[in-house]
């Protein structure tokens, strides 16, 4: 089971190391972790995707809450959450297949953000399934490099994680 945790932390020196260290020490598996500023400059939001059953999730949540710099932990349920991830793919391409790649990019509402004689870089934003789908389609052309940001997520509607 995968869970998406939204973790509000003090925007302070060392907080990422504390969170990452706790996961490593207790042997919990992180699929992805993103961190960035929020509407309040003293608070950062970490979006952490963890793998584990409900008991593991409960322990992870409690251990996170034990960290002094962690202000709030919320388990985001897929039904009431919007989530996005961005990926960049550097794809081998030349004049012969460029238009074919551009078609795929169009269908996925992705973008081409760099073109070179032998490659181009595709930017795509979406949920995990979308990113995995476009990756499948780009692979035959040859993916030279790729990078994914990891998931960011917010709860839908007026009720937030911070409230």
């Amino acid at each position: 089971m995968r869970h998406t945790l939204s973790v509000m932390v003090e925007n302070r020196h060392g907080v990422l190391a504390r969170v990452a260290g706790m996961f490593a020490r207790r042997g919990y598996n992180i699929d992805s972790l993103t961190v960035g500023v929020t509407e309040d400059p003293t608070i950062s939001r970490m979006t952490i995707v963890v793998r584990g059953d409900d008991e593991v999730l409960e322990q992870v949540t409690k251990q996170l809450n034990k960290l002094i710099d962690v202000i709030r932990v919320s388990d985001l349920k897929a039904e009431d959450t919007v989530e996005r991830e961005m990926a960049l793919f550097k794809v081998s391409s030349d004049v012969n297949n460029r238009s074919e790649i551009m078609q795929i990019v169009d269908i996925f509402r992705a973008r081409i953000i760099d073109v070179a004689p032998k490659s181009m870089i595709v930017e795509v934003t979406g949920d995990e399934t979308k990113i995995e789908a476009i990756e499948q389609l780009l692979r035959p052309f040859g993916i030279k490099e790729m990078v994914r940001t990891g998931k960011v997520a917010l709860r839908r509607g007026a009720k937030g994680v911070s409230s």
């Binding site: 020196h13 060392g14 504390r18 260290g21 020490r25 002094i68 710099d69």
Partner: peptide
């Protein structure tokens, strides 16, 4: 020492 003691302290500080 703050890095070393992170997993064995309740909390730690480096005064900046």
């Amino acid at each position: 020492i703050t890095g070393i003691t992170m997993p064995i302290t309740k909390h730690n500080y480096l005064v900046q």
